[in-house]
């Protein structure tokens, strides 16, 4: 049964241009299409009519790259929990529905065009401390470095972050706390991450603030929006690491920039 939808899409010609919502009719939408496939079809129709297609980010279309990210009807990545926009299907919507589609909105994520935003602020947070400074060499023997099962699981849960920015988009304060906390936690739970653990939290939090993200007020909206279901527990852990670093890390390790 093909669906008829009305799309209310944010159109913005460039970073400094004024944007506005424009309405489009999408007829003959298959409920089995993904959300991005639906936009592809709309774009083909726009191109055929000689109009500029809607710009949106996408890459892997299997929910692991973190490129796609749209505010759909007021929810980051749309109405399905634990789902990226590319994995959202049109059967999640009702025939005849009006769907509002917007870019992530944050000072730190300037709109490049239409639905595309610049998320390199997240990259700079990772550059500030989301690494371990070791010569990696060959792969070590299995179990040469024992990791408790619960720590391995916690690190893996945090490492599931794909950096899509949905936490920032959903947060009433446009805070990147969940993203930063996930990056702090996935290294901080592992033995290789210990030497730089507290410096890492200090540097990444400092960069997060520099990028003009807001602060955490524990509304909890980020973990509901997160397609990888990362818990706000990580934020408490980041704060604890930050506090420990502030109190006990020697002054020479507290310099904010530069690799450790």
């Amino acid at each position: 049964m093909p669906m008829k939808l009305t799309l209310r899409v944010w159109r913005q010609a460039g970073p400094n241009a004024d944007g506005a919502f424009r309405e489009y009719q999408a007829n003959d939408v298959s409920p089995d299409m993904s959300f991005l496939e639906m936009l592809d079809v709309v774009n083909e129709q726009l191109t055929a009519k000689g109009e500029v297609p809607i710009a949106f980010d996408h890459d892997c279309r299997e929910g692991i790259c973190g490129m796609c990210g749209l505010m759909i009807n007021g929810s980051a990545h749309g109405p399905m929990p634990a789902t990226t926009t590319c994995q959202l299907h049109m059967r999640s919507f009702a025939d005849g529905e009006t769907i509002t589609i917007e870019p992530w909105r944050a000072t730190a994520f300037p709109v490049l065009r239409d639905l595309c935003v610049d998320r390199s602020a997240l990259d700079r947070i990772v550059q500030a401390g989301g690494f371990i400074s070791v010569q990696t060499g060959n792969a070590p023997d299995g179990n040469a470095l024992p990791v408790p099962k619960q720590d391995a699981d916690a690190a893996m849960d945090a490492a599931a972050c794909i950096g899509c920015g949905a936490c920032v988009a959903a947060c009433p304060n446009a805070s990147a706390s969940l993203f930063t906390a996930a990056k702090v936690a996935h290294l901080g739970f592992l033995p290789q991450g210990q030497p730089e653990r507290y410096r890492r939290a200090l540097k990444m939090v400092a960069q997060m603030d520099l990028e003009h993200f807001g602060g955490c007020t524990l509304f909890g909206e980020c973990q509901e929006a997160c397609p990888k279901e990362i818990s706000i527990d990580t934020i408490g852990r980041m704060n604890k690491d930050y506090l420990t670093g502030m109190l006990f890390e020697p002054a020479e390790n507290q310099k904010a920039a530069g690799a450790g």
Binding site: M71, S75, T100, E102, T107, N173, S175, H212, F213, G220
Partner: peptide
């Protein structure tokens, strides 16, 4: 926090707050 989101969404749902 206000400066971090100067332009509001056209539509925004609250899920857990």
């Amino acid at each position: 926090n206000r400066a971090a989101r100067p332009s509001a969404y056209g539509r925004k749902e609250h899920h857990t707050s």
